[in-house]
């Protein structure tokens, strides 16, 4: 568990976002304590990625407030926004690595473009970040020459090289097999402890999130319908939580019913 203080590092209040007639976020609220690993769960299309993109300023929310370290990040608060961007990193679902740059150049990019550090120090810090995620030997390779897992680690190295206090992970395990899903969650938990950043992970992988997270939240129809510890999530009697948590059991029941139906049909014929 990360060390928690009274004031959350990130506070989201009543976030609202619609795309034409489609309401994606309908008053979503969440607190993320300093040093913790928080997972936001939800079905596909529940608004999880839009929530993260609102935080990263890629998407502008229609209403609601976001507070980082107690300061509001609304329109007009350019200084607070700049401070947030300096202290926060975003890890895209697609990794968003620059395919024309080598692994080392990818990691060095945020330092080169946002700091006045000398070239030598940028190189040293970038190599150090690559070393920490065990990719130093691949520093001259391009992203397309790395495996999916390595690309994920490289994206993480780029995210942590600026020593952020908050890292936002957008579905880091999407499209991965169970073994790789475990590896990615283990990597996030390991580096979150090692570097001491606060992590907000958006995912729909329930089992991994419950094991790795300090707290979990459930986003449904644009609203946060649960927020608590993994133990509280497991014990919750709320219908929405139950539906999501017991989805594997529900699938088992559905399959059993289908098989029974098939059996009846074959008996009929």
């Amino acid at each position: 568990m990360g060390a928690e203080t009274n004031q959350p590092l990130l506070r989201i209040e009543g976030l609202f976002k619609r795309f034409e007639e489609n309401v994606v976020l309908d008053g979503a609220s969440l607190n993320v304590a300093r040093g913790s690993l928080v997972s936001v769960l939800g079905r596909s299309g529940a608004g999880k990625s839009v929530l993260l993109k609102c935080l990263a300023d890629v998407v502008r929310p229609d209403a609601g407030s976001i507070f980082f370290d107690g300061k509001p990040l609304g329109v007009g608060n350019d200084a607070a926004r700049a401070d947030f961007r300096r202290r926060c990193s975003f890890l895209f679902q697609s990794n968003a690595l620059f395919d024309s740059l080598t692994a080392l150049e990818n990691v060095a990019l945020p330092l080169e473009q946002t700091t006045d550090l000398p070239d030598k120090e940028i190189r040293e810090r970038s190599l150090e970040a690559l070393r920490q995620i065990e990719l130093e030997v691949h520093q001259d390779r391009y992203p397309s020459q790395l495996s999916g897992g390595m690309q994920k680690r490289l994206a993480l190295a780029r995210a942590i090289v600026t020593r952020p206090e908050l890292v936002l992970f957008d579905e880091p395990t999407a499209g991965l097999d169970p073994l790789r899903r475990n590896a990615v969650f283990a990597m996030i938990a390991k580096y979150q402890r090692q570097f001491g950043f606060t992590a907000l992970v958006v995912t729909h992988d329930l089992a991994e999130a419950l094991i790795a997270s300090d707290r979990v939240a459930l986003l449904d129809k644009g609203r946060m319908c649960f927020e608590g510890t993994p133990a509280e999530f497991s014990a919750s009697t709320a219908t929405v939580v139950g539906e999501f948590r017991d989805s594997a059991d529900a699938l088992g029941r559905t399959i059993a019913a289908i098989r029974r139906g098939e059996a009846l049909q074959s008996e009929d014929s």
Binding site: A56, D57, R85, R86, F92, Q113
Partner: peptide, 25 residues
């Protein structure tokens, strides 16, 4: 074509989230 692909693969969005001006870069 290069900028179009960078837009499609969220590389331009990644620059913005890093606090790098995509126009300047």
């Amino acid at each position: 074509a290069e900028l179009g692909i960078q837009r499609n693969t969220e590389q331009i969005a990644a620059l913005e989230t890093m606090g790098v001006s995509s126009h300047a870069y």
